[in-house]
Amino acid sequence: MVLRLGEAGLADFEQTLRSQIGRSPQFFAKAPVVLDLKDSQGLAAAADFAELKRLLRGLDLVPIGVQNANPAQREAAAEAGLGSFNGAAAQRRAAPTQPAPRPAAGATRSMLVTEPVRSGTQIYARGGDLIVLKSVSPGAEIIADGHIHVYGALRGRAIAGATGDGAARIFVKRLEAELVSIAGRYLVSDQIAAEHLGRPAQIMLDDEHMVVLGN
């Protein structure tokens, strides 16, 4: 996952991160992390990066590298043993067949997918909802920071509230999912009651528990 470092100091960053992780510790356990330096161009000392690494390790995260770094930051990060990623390229790899263009500033943050999502494909709606008009095949993975809507059959994995939003929900026209997850909680196919399989459903978190509602 990508963590964006703000203008605020490391103490604030740690505080925010700790509370986020506290909400769904399993989801973040040993998660590989790339630091986005877009909003913190001032940070350029190797010691800062070494400190960040210690901080992330302490939170049971695995720091791998930085993105959107300026040349000085790249050098400092490398000295601290962190790789550099090209942010745009990383996004392309994550969503190889991402059919929708990125929303323009001020437009809706939702992502609309009009084609079937094939096995082996991963689509991530960063910072918003994901709407899929066709079916999601077994072995495909759809992820959104917000809600997920599938107007076909959901046969692969759906992960809503990927950055920890416990209010996110998953709506499907036909539930045959391998796995559904909201803010780190999840149900695998075996844990979904037979009465919901093959039927329209809504999945939400109720008091930290995954609940499947039919209609």
Binding site: P96, T97, E115, R118, S119, G120, T121, S137, P138, G139
Partner: peptide, 17 residues
């Protein structure tokens, strides 16, 4: 059979990408 269908699905995705 299911494994063949899943692999075909993957190939169709690759053809499209």
């Amino acid at each position: 059979e299911v494994s063949s269908v899943r692999d075909s699905d993957r190939i169709i995705g690759i053809l499209a990408a």
